[in-house]
């Protein structure tokens, strides 16, 4: 479902070039639960933003469900972000002074779903992340973990095929982070969503089925551990990509 070939992202800072991504080839199949790991500044966020159609590569091709993303218009990209992708940020990115329910309704509004149906779906998404009794709370009335759950509910609202999370537990303590990770696993197991999580935490990565390692804008490791065990390389089992991929 996700096919990336020779993707480069180059930032020009004056006469200096920063190669944030330097020739990435990766294939991620439908229903995968994958982690992206790597040192700070290695290009993880840049890669995830490109996967989420929040950014465009300098060169290379990105095929999403067989469609060339780089050929899409601004409006088509907006629709892809709206319907196919749910994005979760490290800093939650909730609208301040706006209730949890209204935050979750945002992508539904932009999908043109109005009235009672929009409300119903937003409530359903909040119920999925366990916040059915916090719907009218504003972000500043919620804990960090609860805020991240609202953000996840927002990402789920349009039932996207792909869930992308950039260090979703980075701003949370380890206990809350573990809960959030458990939530991702549950969502993946229940709804067969493709989930890609950028993380620093080997404990988080170990709960996924695949760990992509990235350094200096290049993929330096691609470990499969379908049983969701340790990702530190000692017990990993490399298997072929799932049959559902193509």
């Amino acid at each position: 479902m996700i096919d990336i070939t020779e993707v480069r992202k180059i930032y020009k800072m004056g006469d200096q070039e920063v190669r944030a991504l330097d020739g990435i080839d990766v294939h991620i199949g439908k229903g995968e639960l994958a982690a992206i790991m790597g040192p700070s500044g290695s290009g993880k966020s840049t890669l995830l933003a490109i996967l989420g159609c929040l950014d465009t590569p300098t060169s290379g091709s990105y095929k999403l469900d067989g469609l060339a993303v780089e050929k899409m218009s601004d409006n088509q990209l907006a629709d892809v972000r709206n319907k196919k992708i749910g994005f979760v940020f490290q800093q939650f990115m909730l609208l301040a002074r706006t209730s949890a329910l209204e935050n979750v309704m945002l992508p539904l509004t932009y999908a043109g779903i109005n009235g009672r149906e929009r409300r119903r779906r937003a409530e359903e998404a909040l119920a999925r992340v366990g916040l059915q009794d916090r719907m009218d709370h504003r972000p500043n009335e919620l804990s960090g973990g609860q805020q991240q759950r609202v953000a996840i509910a927002r990402a789920l609202a349009n039932s996207p095929a792909i869930l992308l999370a950039d260090e979703p537990t980075g701003a949370l303590d380890s206990k809350t982070g573990a809960d959030i990770m458990a939530l991702f696993r549950r969502l993946h197991d229940e709804f067969e969503q493709t989930v890609i999580i950028v993380t620093h935490d080997p404990g988080i990565a170990s709960q996924t089925n695949r760990t992509l390692r990235i350094a200096d804008g290049k993929i330096v490791g691609d470990d499969w551990h379908p049983n969701g065990r340790s990702a530190n390389g000692t017990e990993e089992t490399v298997v072929a990509a799932p049959a559902a991929a193509h």
């Binding site: 929040l54 601004d74 409006n75 907006a78 629709d79 972000r81 709206n82 994005f87 932009y110 349009n158």
Partner: peptide, 10 residues
């Protein structure tokens, strides 16, 4: 940025 990220057209 957030509104665009969740699918608002320009």
């Amino acid at each position: 940025g957030l509104r665009k990220a969740v699918g608002a057209r320009r």
